[in-house]
């Protein structure tokens, strides 16, 4: 694959970087990245990854754009209200960079479709809003052996971590199961400062690009927590847990399952 003169211009600020160069830019152009959720976290990730020239971006989301989304979901604009998020997202991505192929999945990720979809991609970005889905993505990436960049946002707090299955701590190594539904507040009740989606989603995109390029040190075995009130990052070391039900020594989770009701709630933080 050779770049056109226009592409060399478009990506010149990447190509100038010794860590990227023409070779790295070609890796980006061949990369396939799946965004699970085309909402708050998925929006900045989609925009920066398409600007970067990622060859294929997969968007999976079963929802339509709602007025309350626009405070943070910058992939969608006011005239998109009522339109499927994957359709609105594909338009913005291709307006920004027609080099990018966009695969749309207008559905929810489930135990039934997850492996089939994920197996087509190099890296997965978690941009979903509920715990059963976060556990499902974690498990599916483990079984499909795909690196996962996990993210979460709530009120003024955000968290990112990168998971390389069988090599670094997975989500279940730390949080065994979704929290009991009765104790969980819904996203609508909890609220979130919109820009937080930009901070966390952009770090997720950074991690995905590093994985594609094979450069730097991935955010593995570390939870990076961000407190927007104090503008403070804190890193918490985590380790693979030998008792992990998924990736531990004696796993009890041997196939995908939907771990709870995805509508039960999305947010917990006392």
């Amino acid at each position: 694959m050779e770049f056109t003169e226009e592409q060399i211009n478009r990506y010149s600020r990447h190509i100038l970087l010794p860590e990227v160069g023409g070779k790295g830019q070609k890796k980006i152009a061949k990369a396939k990245i799946l965004l699970v959720g085309a909402g708050g976290l998925g929006s900045p990730a989609a925009l920066y990854l398409s600007a970067a020239g990622v060859g294929t971006i997969g968007l999976i989301d079963g929802d339509v754009v709602d007025l309350t989304n626009l405070q943070r979901q910058i992939l969608h604009h006011t005239p998109d209200i009522g339109r499927p998020k994957v359709v609105s997202g594909k338009e913005k991505i291709q307006a920004l960079n027609p080099d990018v192929n966009v695969s749309m999945y207008e559905e929810r990720l489930t135990a039934g479709n997850a492996l089939k979809i994920i197996s087509d991609y190099d890296v997965v970005i978690d941009g979903v809003d509920n715990f059963p889905a976060k556990f499902l993505i974690n498990d599916a990436c483990f079984f499909a052996d795909k690196p996962l960049v996990h993210g979460g946002i709530l009120r003024f707090d955000g968290r990112v971590t990168t998971i390389i299955p069988k090599k670094s701590a997975c989500y279940r190594c730390v949080f065994k199961t979704p929290p009991p539904p009765g104790l969980v507040a819904s996203c609508q009740e909890a609220g979130v400062i919109g820009v937080l989606a930009g901070v966390i989603g952009t770090i997720q995109a950074t991690e995905a690009l590093k994985l594609i390029l094979g450069i730097g040190r991935p955010l593995t075995n570390r939870l990076l927590d961000f407190d927007a009130r104090k503008t403070q990052f804190r890193e918490i070391k985590v380790k693979r847990n030998p008792n992990c039900a998924l990736c531990g020594d004696r796993p009890t989770i041997t196939e995908l399952f939907d771990d709870g009701d995805p509508y039960a709630g999305c947010a917990v933080h006392p």
């Binding site: 978690d126 979903v128 730390v174 969980v184 918490i236 917990v268």
Partner: peptide, 11 residues
């Protein structure tokens, strides 16, 4: 001691 709370959300 680290208390790690669940952090959901993303949409």
């Amino acid at each position: 001691v680290e208390f790690l709370f669940y952090m959901g959300g993303g949409r």
